[in-house]
Each structure stands twice: as C-alpha cells, then as structure tokens.
C-alpha cells in the first residue's frame, strides 16, 4: 500500500505534450485540497518531441527534499512510444502503479514493461482529448487518471477546483473549459486497472 503522508509521482512525456503542465496542474489542485505540494520538471536541452521527466510530491507536511524522485509511488507515461526507449518503471515501488496513455488494455501493455509485476493502468487519453477538445492534448485526461488511480485527491473536489481555476484562466475561451471538464470526467470513468 502507498503511504499517503507522502506520495511521489514521476511523469514521462515528450516535449510539447503537456506532461509538465499536467504535473503543475496536479500540484495546484492538490494545494487547493490543503496538501503540501511540489511540482517540478527536470530540465535539459529540451525541445519538441524529446523525452522529458517531471515530478510531484504531495504530502501532509511540507516536504523539504529537493532532489529528483528515484522511488516513485506512481509513474505516468504520457506517450506510449517512450516504453521502448526509457525504463519507465525504474525504482517504481512494488505497491505502486503505472498509468499509461494507450488505446491498449493493461494486459496488452504489460509485456512491454520489462518485467514489472505491479498494477498497470491504461487510458486512451489521445482519443478522449480528440473527442472532447478536438486535438491531441493528453495532459488533462492523464491528470484525471493519475488522481483516480492514486486516490491522492478527492475526485469530486478536483473537478470543482479545476473548473473554477479554468474559468479564471480561460475566461475568454469558455469552449476550452467545457472540453477539458468533459475530458477529465471521461478519463475518470474510462481508466482501466489491471
């Protein structure tokens, strides 16, 4: 079981897909639920399409540690093609889970995870975002899937907070708010745990 006093999450994505944005949005949403949070990307000479890593720490007390996360409770993979080039389950705790953006089922994906025996979750974030936002923007559905699987935040409250935050941020683009809210809700329903 994951210890909820400190939950550590590692995000793998490609530059431009919004893994960093999802990570920062999760930090903000967790902060709104009274948690102590860290959301930080690992920077290098990043460019569109190159692999990037981002991290979250969500805790009951302020966490002072400022290193990267080597033993995460959860791993989120925003781009399925990273499974071939990056050891995404490296250090992932036995009781934790990996959440992957893919049209495949957990059973189909498991053989590609280099012997990982723990929980595998899948979500077709691309299809959801294309259906709700008209574009491949997988970060919001991925965020919802991570929250659902980890149980680190209350999902009802998450939807309310994000809606309020988007209403402020996208005051001039209401269609974006509706699309994102639908994407979040669909993802909460559709994430497969295997």
């Amino acid at each position: 079981m994951v210890n909820h006093d400190l939950v550590e999450i590692r995000w793998h994505g490609r530059g431009g897909q919004g893994a960093k944005s999802a990570c920062l949005l999760l930090a903000d949403a967790a902060g709104m639920q009274g948690k102590f949070v860290q959301g930080f990307p690992e920077y290098g000479p990043e460019r569109m399409g190159a692999p990037i890593t981002a991290y979250n720490r969500i805790s009951e007390k302020r966490c002072n540690i400022h290193s990267n996360i080597y033993y995460p409770d959860y791993v989120a993979v925003v781009d399925e093609t990273l499974l071939d080039s990056i050891d995404v389950t490296a250090g992932l705790k036995t009781g934790g889970a990996i959440i992957i953006n893919t049209p495949g089922s957990p059973q189909e994906i498991r053989p590609r995870l280099r012997g990982w025996e723990g929980t595998v979750c899948t979500i077709d974030a691309r299809r959801i975002s294309e259906g709700t936002l008209g574009k491949n923007l997988p970060n919001t559905p991925m965020l919802a899937a991570v929250v659902k699987v980890s149980g680190v935040l209350e999902t009802e409250r998450l939807l309310m907070d994000i809606e309020a935050s988007f209403k402020h941020k996208f005051a001039t683009k209401p269609q974006v708010i509706q699309g994102n809210m639908e994407a979040l809700k669909k993802s909460l329903e559709e994430v497969q745990v295997g």
Binding site: F36, Q38, G39, F40
Partner: peptide, 12 residues
C-alpha cells in the same frame, strides 16, 4: 535562488 530546483518548482 537555485535555477530550476527553486525557480521552476511549484510549491506552497
């Protein structure tokens, strides 16, 4: 402040 570690990390 430390670049990225502090400048780009969102915290309370």
């Amino acid at each position: 402040m430390d670049g990225f570690i502090t400048s780009h990390a969102v915290e309370n």
